[in-house]
Design a protein around this nucleic acid. Structure first.
Lengths: 253, 253
DNA sequence: GACGGGCTATTTGTCATACAAAATTCTTGA
DNA sequence: TCAAGAATTTTGTATGACAAATAGCCCGTC
């Protein structure tokens, strides 16, 4: 994130939508420090430089630094105390389901390990979500799900396909009608975005994936919980297969 | 959170550990605004008062207000833009697995609805976690789980029992070795804390719950995934029963 | 020598003020 | 009518000053 002189570089937007606020000084500093923590440069329990020092490092005012630090604190990464400074919190406190944190986390590990852990989490949660969705959806929510499926079927380029896929899973999550589960969409989004190279390119897979998604729509529409669960398991199993068949498409740099 | 004159009151600590920073001005403002959003006073899309206005409302400097707002932004509750101000984000963006957000959420709804949704989420996730734990735990993690069980068995007062119970489930989560699942511990913690009145008091239930926890330890120790899953399902079913048997112990005020 | 209490230094916390930057809204001119 | 530009509002950033908290040191006492 930072070059030799510690100046803030523009982010490279890998996977994430361009946040309007990413141009803000405090947002850049937050990202810079966040990445350095997630990368392991500062380990849990470690003492960070003080605010004045960060200000010098990134050539910014203490105000901007403090706002960055407050954000990182809100994400559970650090904790500040007078006379002590800011310490890195234990990993168990890190809010890994925060968009930024998960993004920094992904950037700090190799892609296959990351995909392995997202897929594991998805296998754990999404079948249950599908079942809940089948049992609890409202007509409006079902409409959104159907529309998302239609969006997948008619998506043109690969980029749009990924977006439609994400929307599909978010619509399904909404069908489950449990707000506590919603943050999981971030994992799904990251997983699908990073599966980009694996999927969407191969046309034979495209049709298969579409069919597997359709099965979910049908089961949810029929309010058939067990069928929805199974349809989701099938979809995830298919995804896992693809990851194994095509190991690491191309090294990142 | 605020009285008629808008002055900040000391928090009442329901369920949460006393945060050192809760005495900070920006933390108080954050909490005040957060509660007002979660309570529905400001609905998604609504425009909040500007920073200067908040400063007057809570008799604080713009600096403190801004730090509060940055925290709330990091939790996904709001988004700020120049010339516009701060708007409440759609609920799907809210980071419901954040400690504070979940706490404000709980405070804004009736207890039974809250417990219903936490139990639903737990039924969805924890059996899978138990299974993963059985398959992936390390010796050290298993030790922690066993110690947590021992802590439950020897806990004296009810307060300590709840703490030990939370530690048990967090230890189990750690056994699963998937960091993406860790934030769920916040749901478990909130659920158990709020189940306080239901459980722990009745001695017959205490022994039963202890046994159900022991079954989990055994299955995990034996690396028996399916058995661990079933043991967790049994435990959760038992908890659900208790909630149904003793509806709402005492209204909160 | 051990211990307790107070002193000091460091760091975050808070405030006030000023100006920059962004972006909506209004205004004005073609 | 519409588009370009000006005005206005709000957040964003910087600076400087002081308050509050507290770890670690110092010192005096038992």
């Amino acid at each position: 994130m930072t070059n030799a002189k510690g100046q803030l570089r523009q982010r490279n937007m890998s996977g994430r939508s361009k946040t309007r606020s990413s141009g803000n000084v405090h947002a850049k500093i937050e990202r810079a420090i966040g990445e350095r923590i997630l990368s392991g440069e500062f380990t849990p329990g470690a003492l960070l430089p003080n605010e004045a020092e960060w200000g010098r490092t990134y050539d910014a005012s203490r105000t901007a630094v403090r706002e960055a630090i407050k954000s990182l604190t809100a994400k559970g990464l650090i904790q500040s105390r007078p006379k002590i400074g800011s310490r890195v919190e234990p990993r168990a406190r890190w809010n890994m389901l925060d968009r930024d944190v998960l993004d920094w986390h992904r950037a700090a590990m190799d892609r296959n390990s990351f995909l392995a852990s997202t897929q594991e989490a998805r296998r754990l949660v999404e079948p249950g979500i599908a079942e809940l969705a089948a049992r609890k959806h409202t007509p409006l929510q079902l409409e959104r799900l159907a529309a998302a499926y239609h969006g997948m079927a008619t998506a043109g380029e690969a980029q749009a396909m990924v977006a439609a896929d994400v929307e599909f899973h978010e619509a399904l999550l909404a069908c489950a009608n449990n707000e506590l589960l919603v943050p999981f969409s971030i994992i799904i989004e990251q997983a699908l975005t990073n599966l980009f190279d694996y999927t969407t390119r191969k046309n034979p897979h495209f049709n298969r994936a579409l069919k597997l998604h359709q099965n979910i729509v049908r089961a949810v529409t029929a309010a058939d919980g067990p069928a929805a669960r199974k349809a989701m398991l099938d979809l995830l199993a298919d995804t896992d297969t693809i990851i194994k068949v095509y190991p690491a498409p191309r090294k990142k740099r």
